[in-house]
Simulated scan of single mutants.
Amino acid sequence: MPTATATYARTVRNESGGPGLLLAHGSGGSVEGNFGAILDGLAATHTVVGVDYPGTGGTPRAAAPLVLDELADELVAAADAEGLDTFAVLGYSLGGNVAVRIAARYPERVTALVLTASFPYADNQLALIAGVWSELAGRGENDLLARTLLPLALSKTVLEGLSPEQLAAVVRDTAASLPPGGGDHAALVAGADLSADLARIGVPTLVVATTEDRLVPLPLQQELAAAVPGARYAELPTGHLPFAERPEEWLGLVREFLVNA
């Protein structure tokens, strides 16, 4: 059942009248933040529904620790409210875990999965990073958190291409945009393990790996693809933020797969 700890803000784009597509965003993101750059393209062919997790976008922060099943159930509840009986799910980063859990809990309703920059479990590196993220967010040290995350989220090419003035501006803007619930999301990353769910996925699945990612390393993303029976695999030469570095290429991979799934 949906959680009673917060009223989840919903994004809906149904002008195309196409099949359902649920959007599961990443830790510290939002529907607009993670999918805004490709939302028009997705909505051209699908009825798109997403929710902001507690503490980000238009959703207030939850009073209790977040639970992956509740995030999954809230996204499905939004689909119910929009009259979608079946749907594909596009998950980015932590949203890939949400998407997999939806497929595990509602297998008769999911038609396809697209998992981008995601992971089957938190390895030691990712768990340590997520733990630092959660702790710094809890202390309100947004400037230090931004300086910690940016070298991991941006590809080296993009990061080193910034002038000192541009880098200072990016740090400042990132710190100002960090949502109050980002640390709560990161706590879910630290304890993630979807290994049991992945082996049971029975729908067409595309894993889009971000090859220059230093937050979720490429080998971990490849391990995710190998764990899903029959999964297709594609690569984007980008850091952890494909919507910022290569949105059109990301959109193209997603749309081509969904049309043919």
Rank of each mutant, 00 (worst) to 15 (best):
P19S: 14
T47H: 04
L66K: 07
P242S: 08
S27G: 15
R200L: 13
P120Q: 11
L150W: 01
D52K: 08
P204H: 12
A176V: 10
M1R: 09
S16F: 10
G41S: 09
R109S: 06
E245G: 03
E74Q: 15
L21H: 03
V158I: 13
P65C: 07
H185T: 03
A196G: 01
A130D: 08
P151K: 05
L75N: 02
H240L: 12
Q166W: 02
G36L: 10
L251G: 11
E70V: 04
T210R: 00
A226Q: 14
G17T: 06
Y92S: 07
V132G: 01
L66V: 11
R10K: 14
A187K: 11
S30T: 05
E141L: 13
N260V: 08
V98K: 05
F35V: 05
E248Q: 15
I102V: 15
P107L: 07
L162S: 04
E165L: 13
P229Q: 12
E70D: 15
L144A: 14
E249T: 01
P179G: 06
A175Q: 03
P242D: 10
S93Y: 06
A186S: 13
A175L: 10
P217W: 09
E32D: 14
N124R: 14
V216L: 06
A225K: 09
P247T: 05
I129K: 02
V132I: 13
P107H: 05
A37T: 15
T174C: 08
F119Y: 15
A37R: 14
T210V: 00
A79M: 00
T45D: 15
A112K: 03
E235W: 01
G182S: 14
G41D: 11
D193F: 13
W250P: 03
G50L: 08
N124L: 13
G28P: 04
G36E: 11
E248F: 01
V49S: 07
D173H: 03
V100I: 14
D197M: 04
R101H: 10
F257K: 09
H46F: 14
L23A: 10
D123W: 01
A112L: 06
G183R: 01
T86G: 08
Y8D: 00
K156H: 07
P120Y: 12
A226Y: 04
V51Y: 02
K156F: 01
A226H: 09
G131F: 00
A117F: 06
L126M: 15
P60W: 08
L71G: 02
G29C: 09
V12P: 02
Q221F: 10
A209L: 13
P219A: 13
D143I: 12
G230P: 06
A88Q: 05
A225I: 07
R246P: 00
N260Q: 14
A112E: 07
T47E: 10
G138H: 04
E160L: 11
